[in-house]
């Protein structure tokens, strides 16, 4: 039996996927513009953020009306709650793409600096994590969620290392302070993009499996600690218990 509000849920899924694709494109273009010093593309990204904001409002309103009119439970409840959260995360990711775009002009005067700092690798990893999480969002296949967490950790470590190096440079050369500050802002945006990607991955696990895995990443980067902290926690399994091994996970419907 098809429920009349099924159409509303389909509409919501479609809009969230559209938001995801739009933000992934904004992020990808921001990185492309950063690496090529393309200020014209940067301008277009800033302009296009209006579309992201508009879609953000539309998704919020749709969730609000479904909550009010359909009193969703179980999988529907999880979908709508998570859609609201993911929408918020995606909108913030769009803002970070804009932040990166805004800093390109200040960095493009130093064409070799990104290569010197090995930032190209971080940028590619972050482009990949965003792209991957949007694929998971579109397919609802949670098999690769672990990869997202691992990649985010790796991005974190690398951004911290590069930030430390930039601060070191700033202490010795006052003439680099402006570009260095811009780079630190870009690195912070990158770190946040990775963070929001993990948030979205967590939301998708909640939709598909009904499991809350946020705040479990500490367990994730230290398996021994995860095993220890699991003892005596009753129904609070560690991340490894909560996520299926990649080989066992199956794509979900819808």
């Amino acid at each position: 039996m098809e429920r009349h509000f099924e159409l509303e849920l389909q509409k919501l899924n479609k809009r969230v996927n559209k938001m995801g694709n739009l933000v992934a494109e904004q992020v990808h273009n921001a990185f492309d513009a950063l690496l090529r010093g393309d200020t014209e593309l940067a301008r277009l990204i800033i302009e296009k953020d209006r579309k992201v904001d508009k879609l953000d409002n539309k998704i919020d309103k749709l969730c609000q009306s479904i909550f009010a009119l359909a009193q969703p439970v179980a999988t529907d409840l999880r979908l709508i709650m998570s859609s609201l959260k993911m929408n918020n995360d995606l909108e913030r990711m769009g803002d970070h793409a804009v932040t990166i775009a805004q800093k390109i002009e200040g960095i493009s005067d130093y064409p070799d600096i990104l290569a010197e700092l090995h930032m190209e690798e971080i940028v590619k990893m972050t482009d990949l994590i965003v792209n991957d999480v949007i694929t998971i969002l579109n397919t609802r296949n949670t098999a690769f969620v672990k990869d997202i967490f691992e990649l985010a950790l790796s991005i974190n470590e690398k951004t911290h290392a590069v930030t430390a190096r930039i601060i070191e440079e700033m202490m010795h050369k006052s003439e680099v302070i402006v570009v260095a500050t811009n780079l630190i802002i870009v690195l912070t945006a990158i770190e946040r993009l990775a963070g929001y990607s993990t948030n979205i991955a967590e939301s998708i696990v909640f939709i598909v499996d009904g499991k809350i895995i946020k705040h479990k990443k500490k367990n994730f980067d230290n398996q021994e600690a995860a095993a220890e902290s699991h003892i005596g926690q009753g129904d609070e399994p560690g991340l490894d218990q909560m996520l299926p091994p990649i080989s066992e996970a199956t794509p979900s419907e819808g």
């Binding site: 969703p72 439970v73 179980a74 999988t75 409840l77």
Partner: peptide, 19 residues
């Protein structure tokens, strides 16, 4: 039961997808 039921039939009933 109302957030993540274990059984598919429960899920279908409480979300009105039953039948």
């Amino acid at each position: 039961i109302f957030t993540s039921p274990d059984i598919k039939q429960t899920e279908e009933y409480i979300t009105g997808r039953f039948g």
